[in-house]
Design a protein around this nucleic acid. Sequence first.
DNA 1: TTGTAAGCGTTATCAC
DNA 2: GTGATAACGCTTACAA
Lengths: 342, 342
Amino acid sequence: MTSQDVANLAGVSRTTVSLVLNNVEGFKIRRDTRQRVIKAARELGYVPDAAAQALASRRARIIGLILTRFPHQISTDAFITQILEGLFDIIHQNDMRLLIDIIEPEHQHEAYLQLVRANRIDGILLSGPRLDDDALRVLETENFPTVLIGQLPNASFCSVDVDNRAAATMAVAHLINLGHERIAFISNAPLTYTAAVDRKDGYRIALEKAGIPYAENLVRSADFTVESGYQQMADLLESELEFSAVFVASDIVALGAKSAILRHGLKIPQDIALVGFDDLPFAQYVDPSFTTIHLPTIDLARRATELLIKLLEGEQPDSSHILLETDLVIRESCGANLRKIL
Amino acid sequence: MTSQDVANLAGVSRTTVSLVLNNVEGFKIRRDTRQRVIKAARELGYVPDAAAQALASRRARIIGLILTRFPHQISTDAFITQILEGLFDIIHQNDMRLLIDIIEPEHQHEAYLQLVRANRIDGILLSGPRLDDDALRVLETENFPTVLIGQLPNASFCSVDVDNRAAATMAVAHLINLGHERIAFISNAPLTYTAAVDRKDGYRIALEKAGIPYAENLVRSADFTVESGYQQMADLLESELEFSAVFVASDIVALGAKSAILRHGLKIPQDIALVGFDDLPFAQYVDPSFTTIHLPTIDLARRATELLIKLLEGEQPDSSHILLETDLVIRESCGANLRKIL
DNA sequence: TTGTAAGCGTTATCAC
DNA sequence: GTGATAACGCTTACAA
């Protein structure tokens, strides 16, 4: 079943079939010819061969979503599905498809360059950029259409993100407003991830603003997973360091931290107040429900995809660094909402 | 950068380059020639063009993962990420890629046939088959390589699944063993999904075995989401029907049900005992933690992918209907584990 | 307004 | 053992 078959049935050439079916601008095709072609195509159930189309047109009509995570970090990552929801929204509108790949940060650093070199994908959507990702630098010099969901300092990529630093500051300021002074911090991810660095910076800034000294030993680093949150919090609790609150820069990690706190015989928020980050769907259903920073994740993905598609179409995007708003969502994990954040 | 460039640099023909790089069997290539080709390819950073390769070989080396869901059901679906983890495990081993598509059950019933017709994907992995999916029947008659994660009665597809009916029976039997007689049921999804039907059947069977009459008005249907779980449970509670336990055939839906119960001023498990299904990662972190049916989801995806790849390679799989084991995981949502299930 | 023909970069079938 | 050469099914100048 090829375009030739359609051409035969419609009594035209393959060229005409292509022109009609692709709605090519600048060609005036007679009404009836056009109708005949469309009818023939429909009758035969003709669908153009994707490989042939890609080879000839140099466009695969596929967007690649790259996640730099370890496999074991995937199954609990509630962020991913939110990204997918936003992504498909736009991708379907544009008749494109999604190829998704998980790249292990350490080993296959350059695995996604293969996708690019093979022309398998027209553009990349990269979630969670890392500072030490050399392959990303290659994409930059090659000017390959790429949009980051997240940010990378000193890079020329388009990006869609939230102001992680400001959001983290807001979270910690909330705790400070509630009277806490000894506030621990657990990052969402290793500090090679820019989002982790920014959230940690935000924590530091909030302390500074309040004149509270920054204590390195109250700062821990998790790695996306519930387990890492449990471990880091258990470690903090066993260290016998004093703190009355903790800012955990990821709701998933916070789930583990919460579990460690409870299993240590302490209560949230009475003994330890907790603020999370991301406002994942489950955050309002755990007990106590998480006071957390709401991220417009679905929208983030939507905007990033729109931006990428503009790039692919050669349009100059209005702005190449989009920053969406975050909110502090106050629930139960910090206790009564006595004072509202300024 | 084409295979011609590699051929030139190595001083051989494109044919030889192809033979060497693809490790084609049955051709004896001289050692040094082989080395020269490999070296040249590496030096040039040559990566074969995927479209050209697909066009010539009639294999895209892409597997399609099809999810038949509504967009709004995606973002909270913790099942998907688990599937992804297992999938990538096998896909990476086989140097294939993953194209993922979400197909809305109502509108775009046949959207994934396009993928097939365009030869964009070599095989389909379909999660959550529906009884009313006509497009699936087309795949069947066309004998397109397809593996279901789930099951479809009277269909010839290979499938990997758990015994949903038996698992549900086990869940409800647990409640009965604990002394409950009025047990409500909330499905995971509409009853067009085979898994939903099977779990409901399991519920019924457990009741029958215990001689407890099946009460239609204690049976509700949810649609994957937390919200639907909340609504159905709120509805049950407002109905003033008597029941001391509920079997919710999905942990996500159970999250909403739990919330409705608590907001109704009732306690779990004291007032209402709850058993979930899936054992999603968060199930042990909610409060009370869910007694639930553990599904080996990652393994399910792994086995399904292995099966599909076998199919693609023309091998006859050992068994075309794989059934993996489930366990009842006893936690807090049913109260003290007084009597152990037989 | 439509058709002819030359690619696109592989793989695969033959010869040599 | 290796090299021509013909597909693969489409797009796109260019010609008519």
